[in-house]
Nucleic acid binder design. Structure first.
Lengths: 165, 165
DNA sequence: GGAATATATCTTCCTCGGCAGATATTGTCT
DNA sequence: AGACAATATCTGCCGAGGAAGATATATTCC
């Protein structure tokens, strides 16, 4: 029994038995969304590991690459666009600089600010990895038709917008 | 410009400018799903913190509660149902036992096995918190109509099933 | 019964990320 | 110019979780 349910479906059935007074329907969406995030993360991470990067470090490289030539941002800008704290920026940049993928320089007109810039090997690496990464994402969506993808994109965008993220 | 786009929409626009050779459409789904997971986590966590629990610790209490009377599982079962490693189980149970919410006992017929059981205060706490938690989840879905919720549930279930999670 | 193997849990070590405060620099106001 | 506030980044500490190995117990095979 319950063999035709996915994991979240089984959780809902258990809660329905133990707490029939509660409405578990939201879990059907939010629980599955979290499991998908975990599963997708597990599927996506190996591409970064193959390149010797953590996914957090890739985020920083990607932010610099997306910014366009000359591929440089301040730690504050990196913290904002990647939604991490300044302390985490420092540590990620430490690792990337040690690997020779970025440089950290002072800027002349404001001594408080640093300029984190992709090195040429860093730019080459992120350009290579991002291609593999996007193809990998495409693979994980292969089960959906174009119409289903459109509907899913619309529903998720509606949700991010309503939550303001 | 780009003021009418959400965060992921801006990322896609940046990538389209920098790497027009790549197909970024998958990011429209996977990127938003990850941002939603983060945002939902942020919204859900305070309920657990209010009860003095981390969300990880709540997972363990919830697994015990869902199991039904007498609300007891082995560390191995907890690791399996909550999808964490055995080392993480040990630490979470350590914390919960120190808080008096669970007990950790030997079982008579197999000396390798332990039996993690909710105490009565533990059962009372999880029963209270789970009600608040489900209502909180419901709140985060308030922007969707019943039809949209049904469609979203179906699409996510299709996806979890195809990924085997 | 004893050795080898299997099982279940715990321990140790490591990385990662966040938070709070420290430091350095710039801007403002008098 | 000097004092004070604002800004930008870095440092030190902490907790969470994973991986790999250690420990304890049980089972199997001879």
């Amino acid at each position: 029994m319950n063999g035709d349910l996915d994991h979240v479906g089984r959780l809902q059935a258990q809660w329905a038995r133990e707490r029939p007074d509660l409405d578990t329907s939201a879990m059907g969406i939010i629980g599955r969304l979290h499991r998908l995030a975990d599963a997708l993360h597990t599927e996506l991470r190996p591409v970064f590991e193959q390149a010797g990067l953590s996914d957090g470090d890739f985020d920083v490289l990607a932010a610099l690459r997306r910014a366009g030539s000359p591929f440089a941002l301040t730690p504050g800008q990196l913290a904002e666009t990647t939604m991490i704290t300044s302390g985490t920026v420092t540590k990620r940049v430490d690792r990337l600089a040690a690997a020779g993928l970025v440089t950290r320089e002072r800027v002349e007109h404001d001594g408080r600010v640093r300029r984190i810039a992709l090195t040429e090997p860093g730019r080459a690496l992120v350009d290579e990895v991002v291609g593999i990464h996007f193809a990998n994402e495409e693979r994980l969506l292969a089960g959906f038709s174009d119409l289903e993808r459109t509907r899913l994109t619309h529903l998720l965008t509606q949700w991010t917008t309503s939550l303001g993220v």
